[in-house]
Design a protein around this nucleic acid. Structure first.
Lengths: 154, 154
DNA sequence: TATTAGTTAACAATTATTGTTAAAAGTTAA
DNA sequence: TTAACTTTTAACAATAATTGTTAACTAATA
């Protein structure tokens, strides 16, 4: 994702306005590797800008997606997760207990769809999702039942 | 997934009843590689059993999942897709234009999460999702606009 | 055939997300 | 600074997928 500063340029140049709400969400996403949902971003945004609405957060996320500055990920955790890292190829680790998502920067050169047997299917991208248990959920296991399992394996 | 015949045994042995509805959905899933959604299964089931309800289809799918006989996949196509193939490791090709899902039986031995740098995350499984365009959508491209793009890249 | 489980209809409810409207407020170019 | 234009907000409604609920009915099994 472009920086908030770069986005400011871009928006002004294209007749869009740089509002406090946009700036707030942009800044929250900049360098963010936590893969927040819209709701989570909304809660964070509200701390800085008490009057921001969830509706607006969705709008800002949508427009970032349309600009190719942000990706929404469907990882089976209930809500879409937003990832500002659209440049570096990477994969994801998803905790099946708490829904936490972590980036995995590893190159899997062998992950390429075979050329044959695809029935003409033209492959553009490959995403790997690793599922498992994060450190916290592992230590919480057995006792209580972990930190609010909002989503399972999907 | 076990065959309808095996499931019949299992259900009888565990005090559950083998109803026409269960049998119908089981049979529709047996060997099914089309990754149908609940709705699609419902429509197919209704051809054989006009009175079956969508509610029941969801129930039957749920119980198959709980028995580990079926997987629900969240591939960013809107609705969950059901896959009776829970035994053989395989991956998926998803058409970003029409949502079609195809199995890919290919071994990617290198796809293993690294041991280090995971911050204690314990990885259990890896799924690869290849996205692209299926043969039909490729030939339909340019003219009309393809067969109802219900879902995009997610 | 009796018992028990399952199905159906007919809803309500939920969650995530987008659409809508009008009024109010903010941003920007000039 | 102002005028023009864009955004935001509130306050809903709406959608789609899915699950919960109830009661009446029907069907499966021992």
């Amino acid at each position: 994702m472009k920086t908030a500063v770069e986005l400011t340029q871009l928006f002004r140049n294209t007749g869009r306005k740089v509002t406090a709400q946009r700036l707030c969400v942009w800044r929250l996403l900049e360098g963010n590797t936590s893969h927040p949902s819209a709701e989570v971003l909304f809660e964070e945004a509200r701390r800085e800008l008490e009057t921001i609405s969830l509706r607006t957060v969705y709008q800002v996320l949508r427009e970032l997606e349309e600009l190719g500055e942000c990706m929404s990920l469907d990882l089976g955790t209930g809500a879409s997760r937003f990832d500002p890292n659209v440049d570096a190829a990477h994969h994801h680790l998803v905790c099946t207990s708490c829904g936490k998502v972590r980036d995995l920067y590893a190159d899997f050169p062998s992950v390429e769809a075979p050329k044959t047997g695809l029935d003409g299917f033209q492959v553009g991208s490959a995403e790997i999702v690793f599922r498992g248990t994060c450190a916290e959920c592992k230590s919480n296991a057995g006792l209580n039942g972990s930190t609010r399992p909002k989503a399972l394996v999907s």
